[in-house]
Amino acid sequence: MPTLLIVHHTPSPNCQALFEAVVAGATTPEIEGVRVVRRAALSATASDVLEADGYLLGTPANLGYVSGALKHFFDQVYYPCLDETRGRIFGYYVHGGNDVTGAVRAIESITTGLGWRRATGAVTVTGEPGKADVDACWELGATVAAGLADADA
């Protein structure tokens, strides 16, 4: 059974709403045969990454960059996972007060270095998430999980 690892830093109600939508999409009953594992960015390990077949990343944009927690995650897993995880699919969402450009650039750069393949477009949200933002996160979770289910079929 393929495993989807959701690595997130969820320090605010806005980030929590997006995270919950991603989890709901990834665990929708219509998608069968995918194990979903959730880890806070500060507790996710290289073993978690190596044991997963795909990834969903979530972060606030802090001072024009990903959160320190997600950066720490990448710092801890980059070299131990570099060769073993090439070609695996991923998706991500970013929430910011007014700009997410630097955070998006960082995630794209790091995941390109890892050789991961983006399964679908990123979800970027500024300000308070609206219904469309929450729905987009649900779709993100469902799309990445379905990609793993289809790959295993």
Rank of each mutant, 00 (worst) to 15 (best):
residue 87 G to L: 01
residue 25 G to H: 02
residue 144 V to K: 12
residue 49 V to H: 12
residue 58 G to N: 12
residue 16 Q to Y: 05
residue 85 T to K: 09
residue 12 S to D: 08
residue 134 V to R: 00
residue 60 P to E: 06
residue 73 F to A: 02
residue 125 V to Q: 03
residue 26 A to V: 01
residue 120 T to M: 10
residue 153 A to S: 07
residue 91 G to W: 10
residue 93 Y to R: 10
residue 67 S to K: 01
residue 147 G to D: 03
residue 20 E to L: 05
residue 114 L to Q: 14
residue 120 T to S: 10
residue 106 A to P: 07
residue 151 A to F: 07
residue 129 P to N: 11
residue 90 F to V: 02
residue 85 T to M: 07
residue 39 R to T: 02
residue 28 T to R: 08
residue 34 V to Q: 12
residue 79 Y to A: 03
residue 15 C to S: 14
residue 51 E to W: 12
residue 39 R to I: 03
residue 40 A to V: 13
residue 117 R to V: 08
residue 127 G to S: 04
residue 70 L to Y: 09
residue 13 P to Q: 03
residue 25 G to V: 00
residue 142 A to W: 03
residue 78 Y to C: 01
residue 16 Q to I: 00
residue 35 R to M: 11
residue 77 V to M: 02
residue 62 N to I: 10
residue 133 D to K: 10
residue 61 A to E: 00
residue 119 A to C: 09
residue 16 Q to C: 02
residue 36 V to S: 06
residue 135 D to K: 14
residue 30 E to S: 12
residue 46 A to D: 11
residue 67 S to I: 00
residue 47 S to A: 15
residue 12 S to Q: 13
residue 122 A to E: 09
residue 125 V to S: 03
residue 29 P to W: 09
residue 113 G to E: 11
residue 28 T to G: 07
residue 76 Q to M: 06
residue 146 A to D: 14
residue 53 D to Y: 06
residue 109 S to I: 13
residue 83 D to K: 15
residue 130 G to Q: 08
residue 81 C to W: 11
residue 96 G to N: 12
residue 24 A to T: 02
residue 130 G to N: 08
residue 44 A to G: 06
residue 92 Y to G: 05
residue 70 L to Q: 09
residue 110 I to G: 01
residue 10 T to Y: 08
residue 21 A to G: 06
residue 96 G to R: 14
residue 131 K to D: 09
residue 5 L to T: 11
